[in-house]
Structures are given as C-alpha cells and as structure tokens.
C-alpha cells in the first residue's frame, strides 16, 4: 500500500506549519506538496510524498549506510564465500553507528 515517491524540495511557502506548501521535483515532474508533516523541511531536502503530503524527510546518512552494507556483500562475493556476513542494520532503540 501507500505509494510514496521521493522528490527534491524546490521551495517552501507559508508561515503556519499546517499550511506550509511548496514545489517538489520528482525527476522532471514538478508538483505542489503539503509540508504540514515535515516542519523542518528546507529547499534541497529530499522528502517522501504520499497523496500530496510529504510524510518523511530522507536521511542520506542512513541511506549511505544501508547501501554500504550491500557493497560489502558485493565485495565478499567477489573475493570468496565468507561465513562472516556483515552485521545487519541496528534495531530501533539502538543508536546508529
């Protein structure tokens, strides 16, 4: 469920947090999005948008970390099969490295 698409914030307009809107670029499509649920959003940020509302801001560091784990897998594949697979991502409640 919940088709939600990542896009880049172009501008943010409005003072009232619940009324804040702006333009978001999804590839080459630009659409108006409601920012009520991402109060700290700024131009240049990436957000996930569902039915016209931004519901989360994308965390580049977390994205890099998760993709980094996969790079380690790719490396492990090319070297040899190893019994020590890299650790998984931290659970909620644990701090991120």
């Amino acid at each position: 469920m919940c088709l939600a698409v990542p896009g880049r914030v172009i501008n943010v307009v409005g003072d009232e947090p619940l009324d804040r809107i702006g333009q978001v670029a999804f590839g080459s499509v630009v659409r108006r999005v409601n920012f009520a649920y991402v109060p700290d959003v700024a131009p240049g940020d990436y957000v996930i948008v569902h039915v016209g509302f931004a519901i989360s801001r994308l965390d580049q560091e977390a994205a890099d970390y998760a993709l980094g784990l996969i790079s380690e897998l790719e490396q492990a594949n090319s070297e040899s099969f190893s019994a020590d697979c890299p650790a998984g991502l931290p659970s909620a409640g644990e701090g991120r490295p």
């Binding site: 698409v5 999804f26 590839g27 080459s28 499509v29 659409r31």
Partner: peptide, 10 residues
C-alpha cells in the same frame, strides 16, 4: 523518457 518515467512513478 525521464519525464514519462517520473510521471509513471508518481
């Protein structure tokens, strides 16, 4: 094309 792809994603 990129525009069509983006529209389809959304």
């Amino acid at each position: 094309g990129e525009s069509v792809r983006s529209a389809c994603e959304i």
